[in-house]
Amino acid sequence: MSYVAIKNIRKTFNDQTVLHDIELSFEKGELVTLLGPSGCGKSTLLRILAGLTRQDSGTISLDGKDITNLKPKAREIGMVFQSYALFPNMTVLENISFGLKMKKEDSQTIKNKVARMIELTGLEGKENSYPRELSGGQQQRVALARSLVMEPKVLLLDEPLSALDAQIRKKLQQQLRTIQRELKMTMVLVTHDQEEAMAISDRIFILNQGRIAQQGTPNEIYARPANEFVAGFIGNYNVLTKEELARFIPNVANWSHSIYAIRPEAFTLKKDGKSYEITGLINQVSMLGNITRYTIQNDKMTMMIDQLHQTQSTLQENESRTFFLREEDIIPIA
């Protein structure tokens, strides 16, 4: 039996169904991500799991116990929101220990648990600081520590890093993953950031219009998108119909599928075994850190191609170039 099992969850707001009989499950100690665009239902599903929103139908079980009708406090589920929701008149120490004091734990237990969380979240030296004296990243770590110290069976995270700048966000992503692994904590993360989901998840559930579009490990989803939506949402796949692909590869007319996806990094400048030649005019060159992205055009069709950046690139705009593509890198999706 799965540690968390969500079965046939349906939710409607104002005659609009936002969750269509959702079914998903995951195991103890996993970090799973609900990924999808705004309005796909991921935050609603998280709130239903927490007991903050009531589903129209369906059941939820946790560790073999039916929690469908339990109040939030009885579910043993913690939650970290995008807004830090810290008590402004309390220090870091007081914010983290607040829940334990409400449970009337003894003072030595509180001291030991809070000290552990301070160390785990890297807040040493900030114990007596107030939220206004902390950076956004530090405040989010306090919010995380405050939830973790209660030792919930599952910790829910609703876009907890989205308000932070890119550099701090990436640092906290890895810190969150490290904490999750060290505590063997079951976590559910909601995000619309594909890179974040890929970087820290054990498994990903991609939602689209209130339905699960695909689930799997980051590698499974990236390597084999199940449909056109996933291919368009994950990474920067080239998604082409068979007719569009035929403008680059003339012998696809007898292929059995109608839509194909190609990763931009699958193209090479040197022939590798049995490969197709993809020729087009380079009409755009973009520098993306260690990647250079080329947009090539052929008969009004464009294709994105990523190559590792080289200081002295020989590829220039407005020149015709040939790239090579293996047949196994052309993924049928419909």
Rank of each mutant, 00 (worst) to 15 (best):
L325I: 09
A197H: 00
F233M: 04
L157S: 01
E319M: 09
N298D: 10
T311N: 12
Q138P: 04
S286N: 14
N219K: 14
Q174A: 14
Q16V: 14
E127I: 06
R54V: 14
L161Q: 11
T59A: 05
Y84T: 01
Q194S: 08
S147Y: 09
I291V: 12
S258C: 07
D66T: 14
L46H: 08
R321H: 15
V80Q: 01
L157W: 00
V92E: 05
V142D: 02
I204L: 12
G235C: 05
R10T: 15
H192E: 12
G136A: 10
I296W: 04
N283K: 06
S258V: 02
L308E: 10
G51R: 03
P72S: 00
Q139I: 07
V92H: 03
K28H: 11
Q307H: 05
T121W: 00
N254T: 15
N95C: 02
F233L: 08
L123M: 09
E182Q: 15
T311M: 12
T295M: 10
P72W: 01
E195N: 08
R10G: 15
V252I: 08
T217E: 13
S201W: 07
I206Q: 06
T178Q: 14
P152W: 03
Q174Y: 15
E127N: 07
K11P: 15
T17Y: 01
A199I: 04
K71E: 14
S286E: 14
R54C: 03
R224P: 02
L315M: 05
F233T: 02
S2D: 11
E243L: 00
S107N: 15
A261F: 05
A223F: 11
L120S: 09
V92G: 06
I118G: 01
D15W: 11
L49I: 14
D63P: 01
A199N: 05
N251G: 05
T44V: 08
A145V: 03
K65D: 05
H309D: 13
S38P: 09
E228T: 13
G125P: 10
M150V: 10
K274H: 10
Y294A: 03
A197R: 00
M117P: 06
T279C: 11
D329F: 04
D15H: 13
L155F: 05
N208T: 10
Q209D: 10
K71G: 11
L49P: 15
S286H: 04
Q55V: 04
F229E: 06
Q138Y: 12
R132F: 11
L19Y: 01
A145W: 01
N283F: 12
E319R: 07
R293K: 14
R224E: 06
I204M: 03
A213K: 00
I331M: 04
A199C: 04
